[in-house]
């Protein structure tokens, strides 16, 4: 199938982009790398009247480092992270996630911001960036606002982004050298969308212990304080102190009624904890 006819604009800067999407008229869709939107357009599931391509806006492809974070433009690609073109402040965590997103040809065009804004619950960045404690910077004609990535997605394919807003950048915290990260994705084959994602970040120096249960066909479950998951014994062997019952209760509370689904999510989370425990930062499933 081919897409419905649409108009296409390619603004050179954010201000023009905001002006285009702020118009009260055509059904408008923002296009970044288009690796998720493209298939939906081709299937005519998405039927925009106007597509605004934001990938030529230099600001959205820029990177800014500070002492405690790096701010990455929304149009930076998975491959940019994978290849280290964006300096890594996460002790290898994010490059290892990037490396296992879809396929290389997709990673060369797929973007961080596009992935977050698309809000497919099975997408890696939705879970991984929430686990790492990243912040989404959102531009509108009236200014910029910042919200935690975990608050960006509101449901399947839904975010809190308003019609006149653009996800501009993602601020990723600099992890301490002692930070421990575990990420485990369950897919039936390489590059397939995830059926379960578990992510664990323990960074005691910064007082952070977070966990995410993702790919639950809804917004991921984010534990900003994941200590109960480890019997409140942070700093210990995360694998040994992992509390299956707490995790199971979480899944039930989130409405995951199917025992098979709960089982694989539990496994993903526990394996993420194990990876974090063993410091397997550079090993991937």
């Amino acid at each position: 199938m081919k897409p419905v006819a649409f108009e296409y604009e390619r603004p050179a800067d954010i201000r023009s982009a905001l002006a285009l999407i702020g118009r009260n008229g055509p059904i408008t869709k923002i296009l970044a790398g288009g690796q998720s939107l493209g298939p939906m357009l081709n299937l005519r599931l998405v039927r925009p009247e106007l597509v605004v391509d934001i990938t030529r806006i230099p600001q959205l492809k820029s990177v800014e480092q500070s002492a405690d974070a790096i701010t990455v433009g929304a149009c930076v690609t998975h491959a940019d992270i994978e290849d280290g073109r964006v300096p890594d402040v996460t002790q290898g965590a994010l490059p290892s996630v990037a490396r296992n997103i879809a396929y290389r040809a997709v990673r060369n065009r797929g973007t961080l911001g596009g992935s977050l804004a698309h809000a497919d619950p099975a997408a890696d960045w939705v879970s991984a960036l929430a686990a790492i404690g990243a912040v989404a910077l959102i531009a509108s004609s009236t200014g910029q606002r910042a919200i935690a990535v975990e608050d960006l997605m509101s449901g399947v394919f839904e975010t809190v982004l308003g019609q006149a807003e653009i996800l501009e950048a993602i601020r990723i915290p600099r992890l301490s050298v002692r930070a421990r990260w575990g990420y485990y994705k369950i897919s039936r084959k390489t590059g397939e969308f995830a059926h379960a994602i578990g992510a664990v970040l323990d960074d005691p120096e910064r007082g952070v212990c977070r966990a995410v249960i993702g790919a639950i066909e809804a917004k991921p479950i984010v534990l900003a304080d994941a200590r109960p998951l480890f019997r409140n014994r942070v700093g210990a062997d995360l694998e040994a102190s992992f509390d299956m019952e707490v995790a199971e209760d979480l899944l039930r509370s989130a409405g995951l009624a199917d025992p098979v689904v709960r089982q694989i999510h539990l496994a993903a989370l526990r394996r993420a904890a194990t990876k974090a425990s063993h410091g397997h930062r550079l090993h991937h499933h």
Partner: peptide, 8 residues
């Protein structure tokens, strides 16, 4: 390589 989607 430049940052951003190839082709952009």
């Amino acid at each position: 390589n430049p940052l951003g989607p190839v082709g952009s």
